[in-house]
Amino acid sequence: MTFLSNSKTLSRLSLVSLLICAPFSSYADQWHLSFDNDVVIGQDGDYSNGFVFGWQALPESDFSSAPWPFSWQQALRFSSQSQTSQWGAKIYQRMWTPSEIEYDYAQPNDRPYAGLLELESFTGSYSASFAQKNWFSVGVIGPASGAQTMQELVHKITPSTPPKGWQYQVENQLTLQMAYEVDALAFRQDATDDSQWELSGHSHTMLGNFRSEANLGFTLRWGDDLADSFGQLSSHAGHYGQFSATARKSGSWTVYSRAQLGYRFNDLTIDGDVPYDSHVQMKHQQVRASTGVIWAFPTWSVSWSVEVYTSEYEPDPNSWHGYGVLSYSFVL
């Protein structure tokens, strides 16, 4: 398949996303921005950076008022006694690089450069003790994702090492992905007069030509009004839940830790086509963990977290990697 230049392709994908979202603007009550970056752990490489721009409708009792793309997607859920329903969409750009980005030659023993640009739709159903969510995305990995342009621009603005090896990135390929996640409460109890803590389990499954994997894990939360925000946390990359919808006027807060282990079947950032002979092989067993804090008000919220994960390929000299995530939402 022949692609246009990176800038033209990126512009057209952005235009398509705006055209898709335009008819749903009356439902787009929450807008959010998220930034992923590995600068917080003092290293550059592996999963390096991500940017999310998305929206979600404020919670409804069912999907009767949802636009047509979400009304069919919600049918993928299992039947449950949910209290609220949510739907939304986002555009998400991510990038992965070798650990040494100043080299202008191929690095066959390190992970390749890779960029991904996705447009994703989402539906979810929630109660105080059970939640289920699903996602469908279409995207492109390779030069058409615009990741090279983004990293070169950011590193030019900031005092960072200029990346010189993007000519060796994973080649262009369209991607299709589906994902499903379920959260189930184990128990919840009072911690103080004004807060609770809870333990829950979750499973997250993803299927597609970009990445397929299955995971099981648990979440420990401490905060106020936890029943109102149950299931809003997610293992799905780039997802940001609804925390303002039930926040107190004086502000609500949550501190959490989340961990999971799983098995990965395929990963285009590792085994995608590259213009050289790569010696890198994907590691199937994966472990991930995160910890963070969320502060929410009725009209806005902010979240900060640190994500860590074990090595995704062989031969990786590092046993783990990490990055920080800063998210901000506002309600219109």
Rank of each mutant, 00 (worst) to 15 (best):
I41D: 09
Q43L: 13
L176M: 11
W222C: 07
W135F: 13
S250D: 09
R94G: 08
Y47R: 15
P159G: 10
T269S: 11
S61T: 08
W31V: 04
G201K: 08
S257F: 01
S65R: 08
T2R: 10
S234I: 11
F3G: 09
E118Q: 07
S85L: 07
E118P: 00
M178K: 02
G146F: 06
A128Y: 03
L116W: 02
D277L: 05
W295Y: 13
A106C: 05
Y27D: 15
G88W: 01
G238V: 05
Y113V: 03
M282R: 14
Q86M: 12
Y328F: 15
Q196L: 06
Q285R: 10
W31Q: 13
P317I: 02
S26L: 06
D273M: 04
Y309D: 12
L18D: 09
A89T: 03
K156F: 02
D271P: 00
F297M: 15
Y92S: 10
I41A: 10
V255S: 06
D29R: 11
F297N: 12
S25Q: 06
E100V: 07
Q167R: 08
G251Q: 09
A22Q: 07
W197D: 08
Q167K: 14
A128D: 14
V325G: 06
T219S: 12
F70T: 04
V140E: 03
H239M: 07
T192H: 07
K133C: 13
R258I: 01
D267N: 12
Q74I: 02
G217V: 02
Q281E: 15
F35M: 15
P108D: 09
N37K: 09
S212K: 00
S137T: 01
S244D: 14
S319N: 13
M1I: 03
I101T: 05
P143S: 15
S121T: 10
A191Y: 10
E60S: 12
R111T: 04
Q242P: 00
F51L: 15
A184F: 01
F187K: 12
E100Y: 03
I270V: 14
L10E: 03
S26R: 05
Y328R: 13
D29P: 03
L326E: 08
Y313E: 14
